[in-house]
């Protein structure tokens, strides 16, 4: 009789791990070979990829289609500005605190929006984002409608010169991306990952098997808020200014992120990478044509959802059967000889 074994690693994934390590090393060294404009673009790609991966965890794996993740981007940003400005905390420490602060805020939000099912959940999260935007706009300590800027002394506390500061922020962004990937990867390979797959396949069935769907979803929501807040703080450290409109922007922090994930392939770890590349490429290519790139992205996302719900990565897998981040357990039957 043929034996079977459960495996998660694949040949392609091992090659990929080597490739990623080399690529990352090159990026870490980028301040020594790249120009500042390219570094900014790479940093942007990194934080968008982090946001996309987090949204993917939420919507693609836990089925929580949130349209309100800008809450945590904005909240993370405001945490950085408020803590540094008010208490003179070092920016790096403030960024580290942005995650826990967002996680804390996300619990009451979750308890309210989890009362809404499916698509209503989506709009519910959106309403909350509006509420955060409006409330922040009327709090004088947060600068009201016009927002806050980082004071020069705080900016200098990162590094005394501009190049040094940009280098530090660049490395931090790469580090955050790695942390987010590791977090999502670890979560999916843990028993929570199995619970998520079960919930996604059939919530009632998994509930009857003893999977605590509420707690699993809450955990994912809070972890995602944590990560998103962390990324949000970093984004606004680069921008040096925050306002309610910029911090809680639906378009910047959620719309394009959703498009990236959908186009790349929702519910896969590889998809968001492809989707992010498509987004950046379209935006840069069509930079002279206003919002045409958004219309095009929207149209591509609609077409993908209708014709190839697996996205670009789904197509690649279908075509070549490669898995770069093996989170699923695969049953392999061995030839009897």
């Amino acid at each position: 009789m043929a034996g079977a074994r459960v495996e998660r690693g694949t040949r392609a994934s091992q090659l990929w791990a080597v490739g990623i390590t080399i690529g990352l090393a090159a990026l870490v060294a980028m301040p020594f070979w790249g120009d500042p404009g390219d570094m900014r673009l790479v940093a942007e790609m990194a934080y968008y990829l982090a946001l996309a991966q987090l949204w993917n965890l939420l919507a693609g794996y836990a089925g929580l289609v949130s349209v309100g993740q800008q809450i945590y981007v904005g909240l993370g940003g405001y945490t950085l500005f408020y803590l540094t400005d008010r208490f003179g905390i070092h920016p790096f420490l403030a960024i580290a605190l942005a995650g826990p602060v967002c996680a804390l805020f996300s619990i009451p939000v979750a308890l309210a929006v989890f009362r809404l099912r499916g698509a209503y959940f989506a709009i519910g999260t959106w309403v909350f984002a509006e509420i955060f935007l409006l409330v922040v706009s009327i709090i004088p300590a947060l600068g009201g409608g016009s927002g806050l800027s980082l004071t020069p002394s705080i900016v200098r506390s990162i590094s005394s010169n501009r190049a040094g500061r940009e280098m530090a922020i660049f490395w931090m962004t790469l580090a955050v991306l790695v942390v987010v990937f590791a977090l999502v990867y670890w979560l999916l390979r843990s028993r929570h990952g199995l619970a998520l797959t079960a919930i996604r396949d059939s919530e009632p069935a998994s509930a009857s098997l003893g999977v605590d769907t509420f707690r699993t979803k809450l955990l994912i929501y809070v972890v995602t808020a944590f990560g998103t807040g962390f990324v949000g703080a970093l984004i606004f450290l680069q921008k040096l200014r925050i306002s309610p409109e910029a911090g809680f922007s639906l378009n910047d922090w959620t719309v394009v992120v959703i498009f990236m994930v959908v186009i790349g392939g929702i519910g896969t770890l590889e998809g968001p990478i492809l989707g992010m590349l498509v987004y950046i490429a379209l935006r840069e290519l069509l930079a002279d044509f206003g919002t045409i790139y958004l219309i095009l992205l929207g149209a591509i996302a609609v077409a993908v959802m209708l014709k190839a719900p697996g996205g670009l990565w789904g197509w690649v897998v279908h075509r070549y059967d490669v898995h770069l981040f093996p989170v699923r357990r695969r049953l392999r039957f061995e030839k009897p000889d």
Binding site: V65, F259, I292, V302
Partner: peptide, 22 residues
């Protein structure tokens, strides 16, 4: 699956807004 209708109408929303803007 609730994802397709949600994401398709979401895409349509962005398309309409930006077409009107253009």
């Amino acid at each position: 699956d609730i994802l397709p209708p949600l994401l398709v109408t979401f895409g349509i929303s962005v398309i309409i807004q930006n077409l009107l803007l253009e």
